[in-house]
Design a binder for these strands. Structure first.
Lengths: 140, 140
DNA sequence: TCATTCGTAACTATTATAGTTACAATATAG
DNA sequence: CTATATTGTAACTATAATAGTTACGAATGA
């Protein structure tokens, strides 16, 4: 099952909410568009609420809506919100400290990986939820 | 167990081989530095051999060595060799084609993800195995 | 001939993810 | 007030990728 789809699903959810400002959407409706279980959606929305991107209304006629201008949410913000970690992973077990390479490789790789991840995030920061929605609508 | 350490381990292996040009290293020796099982190392080395980065000599006094100048192997090359996929993952199940957002979101996200991955790879391409080894040695 | 090493298949253990069930709490409509 | 719809969350299960491990045949050189 491996790599997480949370980022993709979060973007899908936010694009939906951005396309329906004014009328809150239920987790069941969103789940129908994403094609998954409503609980999965509610879990993710809970994370996005903690970051202040959305708000919820429990009870009859309740639902979810954006609480921030979708122009002000970048894909980098969302990636960080759903806590996707580094796209790189260090050794499962610490390398041998008695080996000159083993002793120093992680420090060197950390620096390189940080740069690469930063480059990726800079690119993601160039797109907003609003921009995403516009691209989706342009495909109709 | 989730995210793969293959890229990190492959870089560790290649840095070791680059630090010992002329004298082949055994998978057992490399495993000792990486702190894992020799079979894990041989599996990865098999992949790197298929890409022409290393060669092996079976039998007594056998082992592995670089078959390419470490200045000519970039981290992007290695990442591609070990087949780390995209750092992004689409929906587990296809979104609802009856929904305007569900129908178009994957096409839009693919384009955005490709750009972000490209930015990451461009950054990785700026470092070579030789450069990695130099940084490791600079830390002694 | 023997010890060493690669090459590779097969099996197991671990773990993150997300799908699912269940149910209490909340809120509105009527 | 009551019925209904909805969120909020815990608990459990299923799936799948990863890598650790065992086993053993093939190759090579001392």
């Amino acid at each position: 099952m491996n790599i997480s789809t949370r980022f993709t699903v979060a973007l899908h959810i936010l694009a939906l909410l951005a396309s329906s400002r004014g009328e809150p959407l239920t987790s069941a409706y969103i789940a129908g568009s994403v094609n998954t279980h409503a609980v999965v959606i509610r879990r993710l929305l809970g994370v996005l609420r903690r970051r202040g991107f959305v708000s919820s209304q429990p009870g009859n006629r309740g639902g979810w809506e954006l609480s921030v201008d979708p122009e002000r949410i970048t894909l980098m913000d969302v990636r960080r919100a759903v806590n996707e970690g580094s796209p790189f992973s260090m050794h499962r077990h610490p390398p041998n400290p008695a080996c000159p390479v083993g002793r120093n490789i992680q420090g060197v790789l950390s620096a390189v990986y940080d740069e690469a991840e930063r480059a990726m995030e800079d690119e993601l920061a160039r797109t907003t939820i609003k921009g995403l929605l516009r691209s989706v609508q342009a495909r109709q």
